[in-house]
Design a protein around this nucleic acid. Structure first.
Length: 419
DNA sequence: TCTGGGGTCCTAGGACCC
DNA sequence: TCTGGGGTCCTAGGACCC
């Protein structure tokens, strides 16, 4: 803004979950490095969570993709070694990396569990960006044991695109004057924010590369894609100027919890039970964050065709109690459910407010008594662990009393359309 | 024993008001 | 009980990201 040249780094952990896992195992006496063999982090198939969450380099060669069902991956790669995810470990690695990065800049933006932006303008060594990035890369490798790819540029978008160029364990630049040479020849789906649907439409228009998109008539894009068109065109031309947001926390807009139940849910009571376990976690996270919500939503995924639908409700006065959330969830579910077997259920709250003073509407139930119960339960769970208090109706249900994690990974801001 | 779970933002359409 | 328009709020669904 003040005419000073910007310098942004994007740091991306290579095969994050798998690398974290590999390092941990080596530190605990493993003789094989998971990164050197066909391996993957995958959910448990028995509970129908069986998809590939991260894969090693050798696995990549078999054409295995992240997000693909484990059985399919094993068909492509019969000797695939799979390990279960360990989110607590990933958060440890994440924190360790952020801590290290903060030694190089006071402006580090956590972007996800494995990605950070760094504003390096004016930092020591910033006059030699390649050398500086290399120093960071080496320190992470030596001290933390995993490798990263770093992209260097003058804005976040270009830095992020740049970090894709060379991996693992590498530093690349994508300065504005390198866009035409380095970014424009790439297939259009390599551009950040061009997903399946957009890529399909662009290809149908004859736009196959990022360069073709960049040189397309902006008016045509705006006509076809509305506000998306402008964003796509800007990104293809390397235009993006958001700040590396400071460590201060951006407030989360919504809190959700959903689960694929390990059997098909075919009756209302069981569905309610699952909703309760989801509402418990959502409620706790809401209260730990000192927030209340005004919108409650339930989502349902059908077993037969995996199609999801949802139902939501906006209420007058903000709530944060588990019992209140659960009551609304039951109502929403009963109104929305088509009666067909369910694979997946979700609870999500939004329109959040800070909990300072909450006004009670005359027309809605007084949840004050429930709030005291919640608070007590929360305290006990915090002191003695989440499993110490379980609602009696869960004991013989075969369902987890608290669905979803309470780890603080969800509290990290996720990437949005505006970087 | 087929495909997870956590987010954000945008848009279309309907209800309702002036 | 004819016609038009603008604005806001709400809901459902779709797109994208990691």
């Amino acid at each position: 803004m003040d005419g000073k040249e910007k310098l942004i780094f994007h740091v991306d952990v290579n095969s994050a979950f798998l690398s974290f896992e590999a390092v941990y195992r080596l530190q605990h006496g493993a003789t094989v490095d998971l990164r050197d063999i066909p391996s993957a982090v995958a959910g448990a198939q028995a509970t129908r969570h069986g998809i590939i969450l991260a894969k090693s380099g050798p696995t990549k060669k078999y054409g295995v993709r992240t997000g693909e069902p484990t059985w399919e991956a094993k068909r492509k790669c019969p000797h695939l070694v799979t390990v279960s995810p360990n989110y607590a470990l990933y958060m440890c690695c994440h924190h360790a990396m952020v801590e290290l990065l903060r030694k190089f800049s006071d402006r580090v933006q956590v972007f996800s569990v494995d990605e950070c932006f760094m504003d390096m303008a004016g930092m020591p060594g910033a006059d030699q960006p390649m050398e500086l990035a290399d120093k960071i890369r080496k320190r992470i490798k030596n001290e933390l044991g995993f490798t990263v790819s770093i992209g260097i540029s003058t804005n976040k978008l270009l830095a992020k695109m740049g970090s894709e160029f060379k991996k693992p364990d590498a530093v690349s630049t994508l300065f504005p004057w390198e866009i035409a040479e380095k970014m424009w020849p790439l297939p259009v789906e390599d551009l950040y924010m061009v997903g399946r649907a957009t890529s399909f439409k662009l290809r149908k228009m004859g736009i196959d590369t990022i360069g073709a998109l960049a040189n397309c008539d902006l008016e045509i894009l705006k006509y076809k894609f509305k506000s998306w068109g402008k964003l796509l065109w800007d990104y293809a031309n390397g235009i993006e100027n958001s700040e590396v947001s400071p460590p201060g926390r951006e407030l989360v807009k919504g809190i959700g919890n959903s689960t694929t139940v390990h059997f098909d849910v075919e009756d209302r009571e069981t569905a309610h039970q699952v909703l309760l376990s989801l509402a418990e976690t959502v409620g706790m996270r809401l209260r730990f964050g000192g927030r209340h919500c005004r919108v409650i939503a339930v989502s349902i995924k059908r077993a037969e065709d995996l199609i999801s639908y949802s139902h939501q409700l906006k209420i007058q006065s903000p709530i944060d109690s588990t019992a209140a959330i659960y009551e609304y969830c039951k109502k929403l579910f009963d109104e929305a459910w088509d009666g067909k077997p369910i694979r997946h259920l979700g609870v999500r709250v939004s329109d959040l407010s800070t909990a300072d003073h909450v006004q009670l509407s005359m027309f809605e139930k007084d949840w004050e008594k429930q709030k005291k119960i919640d608070r007590t339960v929360d305290q006990i769970r915090m002191r003695f662990g989440p499993g110490t208090i379980v609602r009696s109706n869960f004991i013989r249900s075969g369902l987890a009393p608290l669905e979803g994690g309470l780890s603080d990974d969800a509290s990290y801001p996720v990437m949005t359309s505006i970087l």
